[in-house]
Design a protein around this nucleic acid. Structure first.
Lengths: 251, 251
DNA sequence: CAGTACAGCGTATGACATACGCAGAAGATG
DNA sequence: CATCTTCTGCGTATGTCATACGCTGTACTG
């Protein structure tokens, strides 16, 4: 139950500062932080695909292979970059704030975090959150649900659900924004084009629902529409949680 | 409003069978389907990373560059593979089935689809669904919400929310299952190990919520726990939709 | 001062996506 | 039947990338 020294992936240990500094050999000329920051700078400027070990090294004025004294593989670097991209979680729920408001803030902050670092959505994830920032986000998300009567697994599932939704939404809108930039259009125009494309594809064939949808005029013609859609989904999730919270506090 | 010939990405047109066969030159020695199927076979056997153009070509007994007569870039191939991985959507909602049951089936089917082709979760997505199978899934998802009084954008947001949750969940569990295989453990053991790791990381520092969680004994000690967690989130979402559906039918 | 473990990094390897252009095939056209 | 057009398969070449290996010099330890 309280194993003091569970095995931990190397990059995670380093990120949490659990690695002893050896003190022997020559002084290191860089910090891990500098490496990660350089990677982020490149991703910010030219996208995640531009982040190569040699380019990161170039940015720092060292040889490519030197980086491997700081990370054990490129994937480690990407994981650390992604964790850094999360940044600070939003302010923890205050004593006077309701769980619903706090959770909504937390959800919005998730979206904002991805929007601030659009490249981060392309970092391949593998496994549950263990980076320092990710864990802190988890902490704050759980705090929003304190006192609701939800069990541990339930609180956890709830924030997993919400962060997943937020990341999905942020990813979708970022993809659209990127396609817009590529095509020299506005995001709204890309949205409209998508519906036109879907209209053409479903013109012939058994797509009654989609045709109804299109006939209803679903086109996202302005930014507020986009935002309304996000909030719609968020409200559904929060409503669903509220149903349970109420049931618990009544029972 | 009814532009008859909207621009469509090349690979999408091909996938929908909207490309004319030229009829001129030599006969093609392959079909697009064979190429995609070969890619899937490799991904199934050795993971998505093993899918290289040269390996796919080898599998088909042609030269690497021949593939580019069928897809314009590797990404096209991956997109087509991902669309194929969706496969058939679940049976459309029948006349006697409630929206909630139909939507739950649709959600489960999303999970199953990813589980059947775990590699598909690593295919980089770019943009809203346009593949033939994806669109058919969309059609069936919307059909589940027919007659609920929800507006078009609302129905759409709802299924986006659910499919996102399902894919996230499937991804997380697949990641765990894969880590388990790599480590020669059971998925349950990997879950337990994760909580131990988190215990160690949060032992010192401001993590009251996580420590509460761990003290409560949150460890996923069997498969039913896993499944209960999935259903918890799904029920929250469905409850949230139900709140709205009821409000609409009352108003 | 001797020993030792580690830092930086030059070099080499093997995989990969894909641009380019050619030779030959099969219809289209006269 | 002859010529032309267009497309196919694909050989070759290019440039990029991650990373294994091992050497050299460094700074702390005893």
């Amino acid at each position: 139950m309280s194993d003091p020294d569970v095995e931990l992936p190397e990059s995670i240990e380093i990120a949490w500062g659990l690695r002893e500094r050896p003190g022997k050999g020559p002084r290191r000329s860089l910090t891990l932080d500098q490496v990660v920051t350089a990677g982020i700078r490149i991703a910010e400027a030219d996208g995640l695909a531009a982040v190569s070990m040699s380019r990161v090294a170039g940015e720092l004025g060292v040889a490519t292979m030197s980086l491997y004294r700081y990370v054990s593989a490129k994937n480690d670097l990407l994981d650390l970059m992604a964790d850094a991209a999360y940044g600070e979680p939003p302010a923890v729920r205050g004593p006077d704030e309701g769980w619903r408001s706090a959770l909504a803030r937390w959800a919005e902050a998730n979206v904002t975090a991805v929007r601030r670092h659009p490249w981060s959505r392309h970092v391949p994830v593998g496994g549950p959150p263990m980076g320092p920032n990710q864990v802190r986000w988890m902490e704050h998300g759980l705090a929003a649900l304190r006192g609701t009567g939800l069990r541990g697994t339930e609180r956890l599932s709830a924030i997993l659900l919400i962060s997943g939704y937020a990341r999905n939404w942020a990813t979708l809108t970022a993809d659209i924004a990127e396609a817009a930039t590529r095509a020299g259009l506005s995001p709204e125009q890309v949205g409209v084009r998508y519906w036109q494309q879907l209209t053409r594809l479903t013109r012939h064939g058994p797509y009654p629902e989609i045709r109804d949808l299109l006939a209803e005029g679903v086109a996202d013609d302005d930014e507020e529409e986009f935002d309304a859609e996000w909030r719609f989904g968020l409200d559904r999730v929060l409503d669903g949680i509220e149903v349970l919270v109420r049931a618990r506090s009544t029972g």
